[in-house]
Design a protein around this nucleic acid. Structure first.
Length: 320
RNA sequence: CGCGGGGUGGUGGAGUAGGACCACGCGGGUCUCAUAAGCCCGAGACGCCGGUGCAAAUCCGGCCCCCGCAA
């Protein structure tokens, strides 16, 4: 039987859902708080909020946070002992934190103090880290800065993509929370200060970060592709019938040089060629087989299909 | 009403008024010791509704769907 823990859960991303799902195996929150559905994407349509829908499906009380003032009233009604944030996306003001007797915990998908900020998962992959993990902290007024309650590391295989790592860390975060929360509430865990001198920060990922440069190493390409899909995507530019077009790249493989014929070996960086009917390109230190791609305005497809419609001689690299 | 691109045989594309074309795939045949090879033959398509025209994939209006960017 699920135990009701007197806490409020704050979350608004897929990471939040993974965490919450795991917690629900053992506990139920008093309330789920998420950010209001925003008008976004093509046509600025109202995009349904995943966490909100998830909470409804699980029959959990859920509200959308609009004004902090209104939220204060909600707190007075619910009377939570503590809060838990996992992928919320909004900074909680000090005066709100103070309304929770046991404070607000945050499950952050990195080994703090490394990778504070908005894109810890992406940065972990981009930097080719061997380890990742989650940290549960007690929040203070600064972002990802509060003392550590618990931490759990995992070893990375080196082939995780963003979605996979988000899932792994989300589940791990929820699991760890379940393990320690009763001890925490009973005062058996003493929070330890982060070593702020070792802190590193991540920034918001933007579209430009997904650009794949033909003068970069294969390793960089492959990390970017794993870290930055599906959002914001990784891409190169090509000239197609006299026009510059965006070409998104979703899946690549390094071609074993032993399988490359003499003629292909002489290609310059940035030249395309055909390998086993798939599209391939020479970059700085490798011959790269492009498996899945998407031309601007068209659907995602494999490069065999792409070459049916756009033979090799109809396009070339546009190096920015 | 954020900006923009697009819906053509099974797949990817070309085609802005008058014989619907190309590549891959598929079926049949043929060549080969053999082949995801080559050659020959073949089936198969213009998102939906309406309008203008002698004539519409192509022009006009409405609808549906897909996609890139931006936020």
């Amino acid at each position: 039987m699920k135990k009701i823990l007197p806490f409020i859960f704050f979350g608004s991303t897929n990471f939040s859902i993974y965490v919450l799902k795991e917690i629900l195996k053992k506990y139920k929150p008093l309330l789920v708080v998420t950010l209001p559905a925003k008008r976004k994407e093509r046509g600025l349509k109202l995009k349904p909020n995943e966490v909100y829908n998830f909470a409804l499906k699980e029959k959990l009380p859920v509200i959308e946070l609009k004004e902090w003032e209104d939220f204060k009233k909600e707190i007075n009604l619910v009377k939570p002992l503590m809060g838990l944030i996992a992928g919320f996306g909004k900074i909680i003001p000090k005066e709100i934190i103070e309304l929770f007797p046991k404070g607000i915990l945050n499950i952050h998908p990195s080994l703090l103090p490394k990778y504070r900020g908005p894109s810890p998962i992406q940065q972990t992959i981009l930097n080719g880290e061997k380890y990742s993990g989650i940290t549960i902290i007690l929040i203070d007024e600064l972002v990802d800065h509060g003392p550590i309650i618990a931490q759990e590391a995992i070893e990375l295989k080196g082939n995780e993509d963003y979605l996979k790592l988000e899932e792994i860390l989300g589940k791990l975060g929820g699991f760890k929370f379940n393990q320690i929360i009763e001890d925490y509430l009973e005062g058996k865990i003493e929070p330890t200060k982060q070593d702020h001198s070792k802190a590193t920060y991540t920034k918001k990922i933007n579209f430009e970060d997904g650009y794949l440069n033909i003068n970069d190493d294969y390793e960089i390409w492959q990390r970017k592709i794993r870290a930055l899909n599906p959002e914001p995507g990784t891409y190169i530019y090509i000239n197609l019938k006299g026009e510059k077009k965006l070409l998104k790249i979703f899946k690549i493989e390094k071609i074993d040089e032993k399988l490359i014929d003499e003629k292909t070996k002489k290609l310059n960086i940035g030249e395309f060629f055909k390998f086993k009917n798939y599209l391939a390109i020479k970059i700085k230190d490798a011959f790269v087989l492009i498996l899945e791609l998407q031309l601007q305005d068209r659907k995602k497809m494999n490069s065999k299909e792409f070459l049916n419609g756009y033979p090799l001689e109809t396009f070339s690299i546009n190096p920015y």
